[in-house]
Amino acid sequence: MVQRIPETFLSMTEYMNSFMDPLIEEAHTDLFSNMTAVRRAPVCKIHSVEESKKFKLPKDLFYEIKFNAAEDTEKDIGSYEPEVGDLIALTDFRPKSIDDLDRPTRFYLIA
């Protein structure tokens, strides 16, 4: 359970840290509510992934990702063009429910 945020703080750091747990909880709840609709989520196929010119270890892990054109996607699932701020599940299969992402034999990454 998330603790109540106090009305006064001893420092700016204490103030900023007081919002960390509620922010994480809100993000978790929002993520979960969107994951339950995974079978209706739009899809696209990745053509290639390469390191960006801005790629610099250890923190700047930028990649250039190229997607197949919309007409190359399967007709029955529609097409999708990613936008800034989208949350993407990278898989090698089309999940039909949230349970499909919770199987030890199927792996996915959130990007």
Rank of each mutant, 00 (worst) to 15 (best):
K59Y: 10
T13S: 15
M1F: 03
P58V: 05
N34I: 10
E26D: 15
H28P: 00
S33A: 09
T105A: 13
A89M: 02
A41N: 02
C44V: 04
N68S: 06
T29E: 13
F19Q: 07
R94F: 12
D72R: 00
Y15K: 09
N17R: 13
Y63Q: 07
L57I: 08
H47W: 03
I77M: 04
S11V: 04
P95L: 07
L90P: 01
I77D: 07
R94E: 10
K59F: 11
M12S: 14
R4I: 08
H28F: 11
T13H: 12
D21N: 11
A69L: 07
T91C: 01
M35E: 07
S18K: 04
P6W: 06
D72G: 01
G85S: 07
L31E: 06
E14W: 01
D60Q: 02
M1T: 09
D76T: 04
S97C: 08
L61R: 12
E50G: 03
M35F: 06
A41T: 00
D102P: 00
S97D: 08
H47S: 11
Y15E: 14
E64V: 07
F93M: 01
E25W: 03
K56C: 13
R4S: 13
M1P: 04
L61C: 13
K59V: 10
R40A: 10
I77G: 02
I110H: 03
H28A: 12
E14C: 05
M12Q: 08
R4E: 15
I24S: 05
V84Y: 01
P82H: 02
V2L: 12
L61Q: 09
K53N: 12
E25Y: 05
E71W: 02
S18H: 00
V2W: 01
D21H: 09
N34Q: 15
T91Y: 00
M16G: 04
D99N: 14
L61Y: 04
E51D: 09
I110Q: 02
D92Y: 03
G85D: 08
P6A: 13
D99L: 15
E14G: 02
L109W: 13
E7A: 15
P82W: 00
D72E: 10
T8S: 13
I110A: 14
V43S: 08
M1K: 06
Y108K: 00
M16D: 10
H28C: 14
D30S: 14
A111M: 03
R103K: 15
